[in-house]
Design a protein around this nucleic acid. Structure first.
Length: 419
RNA sequence: GUGGCCGUAGCUCAGUUAGGUAGAGCUCCGCGUUGUGGUCGCGGUUGUCGCGGGUUCAAAUCCCGUCGGUCACCCCA
């Protein structure tokens, strides 16, 4: 075989059955979880005016380094969406639906990064956004829906990390203190973190370099700077989670990569994943985002969960297998009279899942294929059956053998066996 | 963007150390007599050894480049 002239672009992949079936089942399950809580599906374009995403913050790599952007034929500067919160908030601002506005989404997103396990240039996320109220109980609802979803997938080794990032009234004071602290100890900071410090002191807290750890451990904490109202909000969130029995770990150094986050911030880590990419979901409040996109000052909160990584975590915990799409019945036709063509059609119309063999192969070969299909029954038509207007139904999984039926009896017989 | 490792049949991989023009298991196909799968036995198909260039009488094997994968940093889902 000649080597293929083309392959999927770097960092992208083809998702074939049964993985594709599994991914769809995951999205169906997610829809079930969030639609029970009255989140409606929202679908936005895969590309936007780049300005929509520039609001995510100039200190974020997602915006400055990782965007797939291009100038379209009309001269407009376009970008493939690197995440969905900005698009959804843009849609909110454009249509101004009544609040609270609760929506969910799923779909591909694009970031130009070096691929790694669990990190792709095109990846799929599911998520929800809720705009229009700053009630801390909404924070609890949002977090609990993610937790419920993981639970229903069968994931057990998931840790919820929780923090509050404050807001425009108190964060500047904290940033000042943080930057001052790092500057006083700059000699102990890694070279790269020193550069990060110039751009966004918060992000230094995220460094994984060993050299930085002692300094980070001693850094001032945002929680110490929260205004009384924000501290109260955070406290309510914690209490609400406890009320629902949702375990969390206070993580005062948790910061997120997108600059728009305020107050409640959280991340879900899959402990079963033995990689650096073990964050399988994250989110938080973004109370200033709607305004920065030209809308009214509207509080909002949401999360995004990485489908690809969640499935890796499911593999690691050996849960949520791909659902079977095996047919219930498999038609084997050696009559030479094209009976399988109409028989599979009839079976499908009657509500059964049915498949068949091709190419007029020998009975032995067709039986082999029928076994491989994992069908429960083989329906066999040979010359004898053709002449008698009947079919042989063979039980492939149990021990009930096979029986000869009139063709008119087939459907009702299968109904007794399969329904 | 930086660095390490890797790239051989559809799949998993051996062969690369000491250069001599490819192998295993699984899958797939056929056969084991007259119309019957799953086990077993026998036989068979499939590779420009990721791609391009170089060294050599000779390269899967050595060198360079490139593409892709992977891991860490970075970033994040």
């Amino acid at each position: 075989m000649a080597s293929p002239s083309f392959q999927a672009p770097k960092g992208t992949r083809d998702i074939l059955p049964p993985q594709s079936t599994r991914q769809r089942a995951l999205i169906d399950l997610f829809a079930d979880v969030v639609e029970r809580a009255s989140y409606g599906a929202v679908s936005t374009p895969m590309f936007e005016d780049i300005g929509v995403f520039l609001r995510l913050g100039e200190a974020t790599d997602v915006v400055t380094k990782e965007m797939y952007d291009f100038v379209a034929k009309d001269g407009n500067h376009i970008a493939l969406r690197p995440e969905l919160t900005a698009s959804v908030v843009r849609a909110f601002v454009q249509h101004r639906p009544a609040t609270p506005w609760k929506v969910w989404y799923e779909g591909p997103q694009f970031r130009y990064e070096r691929p790694q396990a669990g990190r792709y240039r095109q990846f799929t996320q599911v998520g929800i956004e809720a705009l229009g109220t700053s009630d801390p109980e909404l924070d609890v609802e949002v977090i609990s829906l993610a937790a419920d979803f993981y639970k229903r997938l069968g994931l057990e080794q998931v840790t919820l990390l929780l923090n509050s990032l404050g807001d425009a009234t108190c964060r500047p004071g904290y940033l000042q203190a943080l930057e001052g602290y790092f500057r006083d100890n700059i000699a102990e900071l890694s070279e790269q973190s020193a550069l990060t410090l110039d751009i966004n002191p918060l992000r230094v807290l995220d460094s994984k370099r060993d050299q930085d750890q002692p300094l980070i451990d001693g850094a001032p904490l945002m929680v110490e700077f929260l205004t009384p109202e924000l501290a109260e909000h955070f406290d309510q969130v914690c209490k609400g989670l406890e009320q629902l029995g949702i375990a969390y770990t206070l993580s005062p150094r948790l910061v997120r990569g997108l600059d728009y986050y305020t107050l409640t911030t959280f991340e879900f880590a899959a402990d079963a994943l033995d990689t650096a990419q073990n964050a399988i979901g994250g989110g938080g409040r973004y109370d200033g985002l709607a305004e920065s996109l030209g809308g009214p000052d509207t509080p909002g909160i949401g999360f995004a969960l990485g489908v690809d990584r969640i499935l890796l975590a499911c593999d690691a915990e050996d849960t949520f297998p791909a659902p079977s799409i095996s047919p219930e019945v498999f038609v084997v036709d050696v009559s030479g009279a094209h009976v399988s063509l109409e028989l599979t059609h009839m079976l499908r119309e009657a509500g059964f899942t049915a498949d068949r063999a091709w190419d007029n192969r020998s009975m032995k070969a067709q039986m082999k294929v029928s076994d491989r299909s994992e069908a429960a029954f083989a329906i066999i038509i040979g010359e004898d059956e053709l002449a008698a207007d009947s079919v042989t139904v063979r039980d492939l999984r149990g021990d009930s053998g096979q029986r000869l039926l009139k063709r008119t009896e087939l459907i009702s017989y299968l109904q007794t066996q399969l329904r």
